[in-house]
Computed example of a mutant assay.
Amino acid sequence: MRRALLSVAVVALVGAGAAWWLTAPDNLPASALDGVTGDAGRGQVLFAAAGCGSCHIAPGAEETDSPVLSGGRRFATQFGTFVAPNISPSPQGIGDWSDYQVVNAVMRGVDDEGRHLYPAFPWNAYNKATVQDVADIVAYIRTLPPSDAGSLPHELSFPFDIRQSLGGWKLLFEHRDWVLQGDLTPEQERGRYLVEALGHCGECHTPRNALGGLDRSAWLAGAPDPAGKGRVPNITPAGLDWSEDDIVTMLQSGFTPDYDVVGGEMAQVVRNTAQLSDEDRAAIAAYLKAVPPVESTAPQPGAGDSTAEEGTASDEGDS
């Protein structure tokens, strides 16, 4: 009996050790930023493309050319409520983080203490960005005003409050490959980068399974709003029959071909895409026309839709 109990204990310890190892953070290589210098000027446009301010500016705060990324915005989901943290260049934000720690958080979903970040922060899209682009964004954020606001904790119930379990989630649902594969034009490839990586449009426009993993077989086919307020629309060619010029116009001005104006979260997305170049907006349109059509019951984009291409919650700090 003693031997049997000892065997069971050894197996349990080995199993626990293996589980801990499998769910441990997968950090960027320590050399990832070797030879990389962030460019704040270039990072300003990339910051807009990535939608960082859309989530990290305090609720109700006035948007300016120098946003204060004090956090505090709340995002209700079926798993609980996530609260965007302070990511300003202050000790309460990311001021004491190294560039490597910030880039690692954005691209691997791991904070400065080595803890997993929740996928409410779209690192599962940013993991396809280039290290140079993320470093440029970090350089720009460091030029913005600091805020001494403390980051508020997420409001999650058991077992979703166990961060180590996110390592298992990553094993199941993290994807570092592109959704749209095949022979693409340079313009479509650029659009893919903007939509699938920096813009992380799929984080809201793609349905999820019961554990919150993206259903990539229905890429961009629309999904329930995570806060329970209607649906995010289908933007594949099966749901969005606009021309490329129509899409470009909407991304620049917010006006639709039906003489309407986008509203809800999409209005914030347009404020971001309006800062991109004409070529980048055209690339996004070319990509959206190239993705496979997927039928769904999601509504067409319009003035009252709850679209949110900037993501469910973009927590670049303690998410």
Rank of each mutant, 00 (worst) to 15 (best):
V110Q: 02
D111Y: 03
D111R: 01
D112E: 15
D112R: 15
E113C: 08
G114Q: 10
G114N: 09
G114V: 10
G114F: 11
R115T: 03
H116G: 03
H116L: 07
L117K: 13
L117H: 09
Y118S: 15
P119W: 15
P119H: 15
P119Y: 15
P119F: 15
F121P: 00
A125M: 09
A125I: 05
Y126R: 13
Y126E: 12
Y126D: 06
Y126W: 15
N127V: 13
K128W: 07
T130M: 00
T130K: 00
D133M: 11
V134A: 11
A135V: 03
D136L: 12
D136H: 13
V138G: 11
A139H: 05
A139S: 09
Y140F: 15
I141E: 07
R142N: 02
T143C: 01
T143K: 02
P145E: 06
P145W: 03
P146M: 10
P146H: 09
S147N: 09
D148V: 08
G150F: 01
S151D: 01
L152E: 13
P153L: 13
P153D: 14
H154P: 00
H154A: 04
E155R: 02
L156C: 07
F158E: 04
D161W: 03
D161T: 09
I162S: 01
Q164C: 04
Q164S: 14
S165I: 10
S165Y: 10
S165T: 12
L166Q: 09
L166D: 07
L166T: 08
G167Q: 06
K170E: 13
L171V: 05
F173P: 00
F173L: 02
F173A: 12
F173V: 03
R176T: 09
D177W: 00
W178E: 02
V179E: 05
V179H: 06
V179M: 02
L180F: 02
L180H: 03
L180S: 03
Q181R: 15
G182C: 14
G182M: 14
D183I: 06
L184M: 07
T185R: 11
T185V: 12
P186L: 03
P186W: 04
E187F: 02
E187A: 12
Q188R: 08
E189H: 10
R190H: 13
G191D: 00
Y193C: 06
V195N: 09
E196H: 04
L198K: 04
H200F: 06
H200N: 12
E203S: 09
E203F: 08
T206N: 00
T206L: 00
P207S: 03
P207E: 02
R208D: 04
N209R: 08
N209E: 11
N209M: 07
N209P: 09
G212Q: 06
G212C: 05
L214M: 14
D215N: 03
R216Y: 14
